[in-house]
Design a binder for these strands. Structure first.
Lengths: 197, 197
DNA sequence: GTCTATAAATGGATAGAC
DNA sequence: GTCTATCCATTTATAGAC
């Protein structure tokens, strides 16, 4: 493990560096406006080295996408775990999402606002990815336990998280004139009033 | 007006035909996956003729985008106009949006799910476009008239329309297992319970 | 494992005939 | 106004030296 990293005078993890910089470029300019030359210039890593670590540009994007979905999934799972009832779990999820949006705006920009299917033909729609399924699962359990009044599960999930997701979008677009966190309590309150049994 | 359309054996409005087909291609494949050759093949209109009507590919996209935003803006304005109070106006807006989504899925796909700023550098974020401002306006008036309980206006607007917009996204992604219209009443009910004074 | 140089293909855009 | 043919820049991807 200490052997693979000492080539070319720079011992750091080249692959991670490429992924990190690519995320920045993709989230700022989009996949199609970012050429491998752009990535080379921004990282100092040659095209050949990039191709040594990733099969092609699409595979690079796919690696990035799956890593970020995993991260998001883990953050959401960890937010849900400590809580029992639907209301507490939903609150924890929104809290985690807002923190992710503030701490890692590029990651959330890439996950929420990119059209992945335009360049990852095999990707399933984002709404059926694991983190989003976990969010829907919270609401479905709430419905089963009668913590939420009887509603279609799609309606309930959209009502629970639709407002928060919209605010995250607005924040990432720079449209909000107030700090995102200042809006969390009211958002949770609105959503819950719409759902409570 | 009858003179310009009779060239080349086909009298129909060539420009409109190009716009229509381009919408289909852009909404299905995205802007960057659609070449002018694709548009030529799909329309039968030569590259030269396309360039005669549009300055370049970007201008074609811009024309499409602005036309659709105008259409959406008009649909929303007409939905709002006949009603007095916030609740009725909001209901009419969601109803209009759902109908648009069902009747013109390509148009809504293009407006809601495309990242226009990646290819229209001068476009402002979609959330500050006129139709979305009109939607926010409905909520702001509701706040002023105390039909909605005291809330931040961003929170209130996101709570009012966030769930419905999310369902539209899910429908366009093919994720819903039930007809979109069947979910409207419950969605409106959830949103309003969260907001009512 | 990393680099440079280059191949091969495609795309946007233009020129000029009709 | 519309068409065909072509130009030129850019891009992904590969070959081969180190």
């Amino acid at each position: 493990m200490a052997k693979a990293e000492q080539k070319s005078g720079r011992g750091e993890d080249l692959k991670a560096e490429v992924l990190k910089t690519t995320l920045t470029l993709f989230s700022q300019q989009g996949y199609f406006n970012t050429s491998l030359q752009d990535i080379r210039k921004a990282t100092g890593v040659s095209i050949g080295a990039i191709y040594h670590h990733f099969e092609n540009k699409e595979a690079l994007a796919k690696s990035l996408y799956e890593t970020l979905l995993d991260e998001m999934n883990q953050a959401i799972s960890e937010a849900i775990a400590p809580h029992e009832n639907c209301r507490a779990q939903s609150r924890a999820v929104v809290e985690a999402l807002f923190h992710l949006t503030l701490d890692e705006p590029q990651k959330m920009q890439f996950i929420l606002m990119a059209q992945h299917r335009e360049y990852l033909p095999d990707a399933s729609p984002i709404c059926s990815s694991r983190p989003f399924q976990a969010m829907k699962g919270v609401v479905e359990q709430g419905l089963r336990k009668k913590e939420i009044r009887p509603l279609d599960s799609w309606v309930a999930a959209s009502a629970m998280f639709g407002g928060a997701l919209r605010l995250m979008n607005l924040h990432l677009d720079g449209a909000l004139d107030r700090p995102l966190m200042d809006l969390m309590e009211e958002t949770l309150d609105c959503a819950w009033r719409g759902l409570e049994a």
